[in-house]
Write a protein that binds this DNA or RNA. Structure first.
Length: 813
RNA sequence: GCCCGGGUGGCGAAACUGGCAGACGCAACGGACUUAAAAUCCGUAGACCUUCAAUGGUUGUGCGGGUUCAAGUCCCGCCCCGGGCACCA
């Protein structure tokens, strides 16, 4: 029974081919087993997997394999988020058509996937850039169009005057075009498509309660903030020679302190009522906002020359335009209450506009406008406010809102920070929006039976001009589905977040050519039991996905409110101390690691180096350590096979089996509760260390049990080695389909425990006692111990704390 | 500015419910094997002090207080690092 040297190529390469050709990982339809849907976020096919991907997939794969062994019908699919800008950019650079570039990348990455033996059911693969997928994007879009959930409106886009094209947000670098660093982007208004996410704002917010406990709190908090519901009132201010201007405020109780009406630079009044000079100034503000990144921006504004009337006080107030007033929130106009709002205060002080305090603290005086250095935003008692004076803020809010409503110049209102989802992209590599513009009938949806609207293959991509599709006459020129007359196709394509908003439904029925999926299949597989991905998708992808599910529920396609039952967000991978990035050139590729150390080592290290939710540092030395560990396991097993040749006298059986079953208990618990696989693997290492130390005394029977259970415990983490050992022992078939072993409590039980004896909290002695004795017995044992008696000489015991299994603390004087 | 995380040896980390701080791994050092090296196996190891030595002692989880028989863990006040949001009226 000579030991065998661990050679990852020998163990992995052939098996990799076998598994790729097998149907080992197929999910069953119509199974009697309980289902488990585990999902990792689908990658963008950039061309190569790196260790960040490997970490993500190793977590999901370990879980999938564990659940298989627990007897579940596991659905574990994978696909490609294949539309998007990089393909288009690559095309412009290398003259390679986006589709070709993308499919080549997918082929390469799929090969790496199979090298790593991730347990995906590739029969369900989804590639979002293929017509059999994106036609359903179009189908959904048409449903939303019918329901008024998809609509068009004017919206601003980033525009580079040199490229004469629309830029995506990620193509804007420091406020300038990514290809013309000296050319600041401008904002241009274009007619664009939107999805009415705000129609579900309340549901998206309220249903967060269904996710609590199963999604990370910080993700839920981020989503709540993103939705940003706030309650207040809308109030009309009469503006001379214009009419009513509506504002939204959460502090109607301060309205007697409103001294200025401030409009967003995009406000209608600016366009319709003001002169060229004012319009130019407003335009400058809009462009400046696009160019400035986040950070403190100096407040700017100008007087419009117009005046408004405060509907409560009847006071005349100036109307200004301010760069800090957002058109996209509320009504695009605010009543400025400088005494009680920090931003208004800053603005009014800068432009020497009046400041009128109207709220005093419950136990204080009304602040003096002359002496104020900061606004006070607190609630308090309303003063200088006619009949409302003396009321508490909260009561005044109600009373004033009611009055405004009764008088017909206002009402209670709720505003969200969440905006409708702009899905138009003036890009080529995305799903064509399936509508036609007819001179007669306006916007007409393409009939379902004409889907998909195919993305033309032959398109010249220059990065210049309007949407690339607009330059393809065969695409643009069509007929109106209603009247048959000449018409033009929409040339915008969809945001790629559309693709990823529902791809996980398609996995359940990936080949359906009559519908996006069969609702019966969804009803079986959904919700996703465990979704795993990067926290960077905490907001957009996960809100859009939730929105999509709610929209689908409205269509009767799914019974669920929420698509994802449990969410896990894993940490980033740092490579040898530095954040991995292409520009730094320190991206650790999955292929090279597999070649050098094998997939098992890479996977195990990805799980060992840190708990999965935290950032981890990938170090070459650390990987070596894992490789050594796998070698230790393999050598130990092989030199003790066949078991018939193991001649140990059994003297260490109890000790090793105790450790074995304790380890099994721990790992089972880690899977079922906290996923700290780093400690699971550390426990396996401890076990193997114990095996080495006690090897000679192990009987053949115990050895068999040890090797068998170690093999099973390794199976979710290191599938190649586990299968190899499984077969070396003499078993056949996949270890993956073996039942997960149950820990034997009797064998795991410690019969003796070491107890520390403390004097005033300091460890002074140790004693070994039988496990499970009561605290009274423990106390007696400690006081009876010779060393303890020595230590106690001349001292008085004040108090004794005895904690069974842990310690005895003697408080002495 | 606001909201989350986090700060433990030379390094990655562990300590799950307040109960022996540093499991496990990396790097380091010592030994065995070897002609030698690699590989492998065994061992040492927070810091400081004391002892020929076994050992014994002090100190130690970002800083300062507090609660407790007992604090990395709980409470109060700060400092630093990372992430998210950022004029949301």
């Amino acid at each position: 029974m000579p030991e065998k040297i661990y050679d990852h190529n020998l163990i992995e390469l052939q098996r990799c081919e076998e598994w790729a050709a097998s149907d080992l990982y197929k999910a069953e339809e119509n199974s009697s087993k309980p289902k488990y849907y585990v999902l990792e976020m689908l990658p963008y096919p950039s061309g190569a997997l790196h260790i960040g991907h490997i970490r993500n997939y190793s977590i999901g794969d370990a879980l999938a394999r564990y659940m298989w062994m627990r007897g579940y019908n596991v659905l574990h699919p994978m696909g490609w988020d294949a539309f998007g800008l990089p393909a288009e950019n690559a095309a412009i650079k290398n003259q390679c058509p986006p589709r070709e570039w993308t499919l080549q990348n997918i082929a390469k990455m799929k090969q790496t996937h199979s090298r790593y033996a991730f347990s995906y059911d590739w029969d369900r693969e989804v590639t979002t850039c293929e017509p059999d997928y994106y036609r359903w994007n179009q189908w959904f879009f048409l449903r939303m169009l019918e329901q008024g959930l998809a609509y068009r409106k004017q919206a601003l886009v980033n525009w580079c005057s040199k490229c004469a094209t629309v830029l995506a947000n990620e193509q804007v670098v420091d406020g300038c075009c990514w290809r013309h660093e000296d050319t600041p982007v401008e904002q241009r208004a274009l007619e664009q498509w939107f999805l009415r996410t705000t129609a579900f704002a309340d549901e998206l917010l309220n249903d967060i309660s269904q996710l609590e406990g199963n999604w990370p709190d910080r993700v839920l908090t981020m989503q709540k903030n993103w939705i940003g519901r706030s309650e207040g009132a809308e109030v009309d201010f009469e503006v001379e020679s214009y009419g009513k201007v509506r504002v939204f405020t959460t502090r109607i109780d301060t309205i007697y302190g409103a001294t200025v009406l401030i409009l967003a630079p995009e406000h209608e009044i600016v366009r319709t009522l003001l002169g060229a000079e004012a319009q130019a100034a407003a335009k400058k503000m809009v462009d400046a906002r696009a160019q400035q990144g986040p950070g403190d921006v100096e407040k700017e504004g100008f007087f419009t020359g117009l005046h408004a009337v405060n509907p409560f006080s009847g006071e005349k107030m100036q109307v200004w335009v301010g760069n800090f007033v957002l058109m996209g929130y509320g009504t695009g106009a605010v009543m400025a209450v400088p005494a009680h709002d920090e931003r208004d205060f800053e603005f009014c002080r800068k432009y020497k506009l009046p400041i009128v305090p109207v709220i005093r603290p419950e136990d204080g005086e009304l602040p003096d406008a002359e002496l104020m250095t900061v606004a006070s935003g607190e609630y308090g008692i309303v003063e200088s406010s006619a009949q409302y004076s003396g009321m508490k803020s909260q009561d005044a809010r109600k009373a004033m809102t009611a009055y405004a409503e009764a008088q017909g110049f206002g009402k209670a209102a709720i505003t969200y920070r969440l905006k409708d989802w702009g899905v138009s992209r003036q890009r080529y590599w995305g799903t064509p929006i399936p509508v036609v513009h007819c001179p007669e009938h306006g916007v007409v949806g393409v009939p379902d039976d004409q889907l998909p609207v195919l993305l033309p293959r032959q398109v010249e991509l220059t990065g210049q001009g309007r949407s690339p599709l607009a330059a393809v006459p065969e695409f643009v020129q069509t007929t109106c589905p209603k009247c048959g007359g000449p018409a033009e196709r929409e040339t915008d394509t969809m945001d790629t977040f559309v693709d990823s908003s529902w791809y996980f439904y398609r996995y359940c029925d990936a080949k359906n050519s009559n519908a996006p999926f069969d609702p019966a299949k969804i009803a079986y597989w959904f919700p996703i039991d465990q979704y795993i991905g990067g926290v960077e998708h905490a907001i957009l992808h996960l809100i859009y996905s939730r929105f999509w599910t709610k929209m689908m529920k409205g269509l009767g396609l799914t019974p669920n409110d929420e698509p994802v039952k449990k969410l896990f967000t894993q940490g980033m991978v740092i490579a040898n101390g530095a954040k991995m990035s292409k520009s730094k050139g320190n991206v650790v590729g999955a292929d090279s690691v597999a070649e050098r150390y094998g997939a098992d080592t890479a996977r195990l290290f990805a799980l060992f180096a840190a708990p999965p939710e935290k950032d981890m540092d990938w170090t070459d030395a650390g990987v070596e350590g894992i490789y050594r560990f796998l070698g230790r396991v393999y050598r130990f097993a092989t030199r003790n096979l066949p078991l018939s040749e193991v001649k140990g006298d059994g003297s260490t059986d109890a000790k090793v089996l105790r450790k074995l079953h304790q380890t099994l208990k721990k790992i089972t618990n880690d899977f079922d509760t906290r996923w700290h696989f780093n400690t699971s693997i550390a426990a396996l290492m401890e076990l193997v260390n114990e095996c080495y130390a006690s090897e000679a005394g192990l009987s053949s029977a115990a050895m068999g049990q040890v090797i068998q259970i170690i093999t099973m415990m390794l199976a979710p983490f290191a599938p190649y080695l586990a299968q190899q050992l499984w077969e070396e022992v003499g078993n056949t078939g996949p270890v993956l389909k073996q039942p997960w072993p149950a820990a034997d409590e009797d064998l795991a039980r410690e019969n003796e425990v070491e107890i520390v004896v403390q004097l005033n909290g300091k460890v002074r002695a140790r004693l070994v006692v039988a496990a499970g004795i009561s605290s009274a017995e423990l106390e007696a044992a400690a006081l009876g111990d010779e060393k303890v008696r020595e230590l106690l000489e001349g001292k008085t015991i004040v108090k004794v704390i005895a904690v069974p299994g842990k310690l005895v603390n003697l408080v002495v004087k």
